[in-house]
């Protein structure tokens, strides 16, 4: 359809062109003596070229460049790409790192940030063993079912309980943190542009002092990666803040890397399974595709290899046999 319509337009164009050339010829032939001088023609060509270039330039000036409303400081420094191992196609989470990261979350981040979408049961087998998870759940109290008098008693936590939040609600969290709400970290890696790189850069990117002339609001800290550069969270990770059970040296960047990997697991606990399933799908579909190609060729073999010969009748009167 498209081809046909374009063909038709081509024809119309041709017709138009023929018409115009015809008209031009006629006008030239009719007004024989007043042939325009090459000087004038050159000027006309130059003027029209200039007009064309000028209009393109004007149009680009008007609509071409994208408008940046914010200054670099308002946009924030774009996080550097780090070569995360678990982001590669054939790699899983490093579960030793997840374990360390969970330790960092528990000892450092948990004071302010909730992780409300992660129940203790999901930590079993990925970060903790059953017994460790149970023991950790039992450290907290949860509301149980109403008793005979209709009162709700407290009971120790079970594996099916969710990790408790540090504050009762958002308002309490704001009130305790100078009006700034510490975001829930369950989906923070998925929820921030730059993902792992952004959170890692944010945690480790606090400079010793803000650059000269930078304005830092009251109660805020300078962090180049945070849009606006003023972040309410102060630097929390310092060398040797936690003591890893596997005796990894707990430097700032090591802790940040571990906790970011843990938070990525919290946001995408299905990643390992997803990648494995992806591999299975690719393997099986490639075999099936190869099979279907073979079957097609097999079935078409007779059609493709046949030869149709037109044997014209001989001109002679003899009948063909």
């Amino acid at each position: 359809m498209l081809a046909r319509s374009s063909l038709r337009s081509m024809r119309i164009l041709n017709g138009a062109r023929n018409g115009t050339t015809a008209v031009a010829k006629r006008s030239i032939s009719s007004s024989g003596p007043s042939i325009e001088s090459p000087m004038k023609l050159n000027m006309a060509a130059a003027a029209s070229t200039a007009l064309a270039i000028g209009s393109v330039a004007w149009y680009y000036h008007l609509y071409g460049p994208t408008a940046h409303a914010g200054s670099p400081a308002e946009e924030g420094l774009h996080a550097t790409k780090y070569p995360w191992v678990h982001e590669q196609w054939f790699k899983t989470f490093d579960h030793q790192a997840l374990r360390r990261g969970f330790q960092v979350y528990r000892e450092v981040c948990m004071a302010c940030h909730s992780l409300t979408r992660i129940p203790y049961r999901s930590l079993v087998g990925t970060v903790l063993t059953v017994d460790e998870a149970k023991a950790m759940a039992e450290e907290n109290e949860y509301d149980s079912e109403p008793n005979d008098e209709g009162e709700i008693e407290k009971r120790p936590g079970k594996l099916s309980d969710y990790i408790p939040a540090p504050y009762k609600n958002d308002e309490a969290a704001r009130a305790a943190n100078n009006g700034a709400l510490p975001p829930d970290l369950s989906l923070i890696i998925k929820g921030r542009h730059g993902g792992c790189d952004y959170v890692f850069s944010l945690l480790t990117g606090y400079p010793d002092e803000p650059p000269a002339g930078a304005q830092v609001g009251a109660g805020l800290n300078f962090n180049p990666y945070f849009p606006g550069t003023g972040i309410a969270m102060a630097r929390v990770l310092y060398d040797g803040l936690v003591e890893y059970e596997d005796e990894t040296p707990a430097t700032t960047s090591q802790m940040a890397k571990d906790v970011v990997e843990f938070l990525n697991w919290a946001a995408e606990p299905e990643m390992d399974d997803r990648k494995r399933m992806g591999m299975k799908v690719l393997a099986v579909t490639s075999v099936l595709f190869a099979l279907s190609v073979w079957v097609k060729r097999y079935k078409w073999a007779s059609l493709k290899s046949r030869k149709i010969v037109y044997d014209p009748p001989k001109v002679s009167n003899k009948t063909r046999n």
């Binding site: 790409k81 400079p207 650059p211």
Partner: peptide
């Protein structure tokens, strides 16, 4: 302020 210059330096260094 030197925020922009700081950004360029930090970007280069981290990269």
């Amino acid at each position: 302020d030197c925020v922009e210059e700081f950004f360029h330096l930090a970007h280069c260094a981290t990269q």
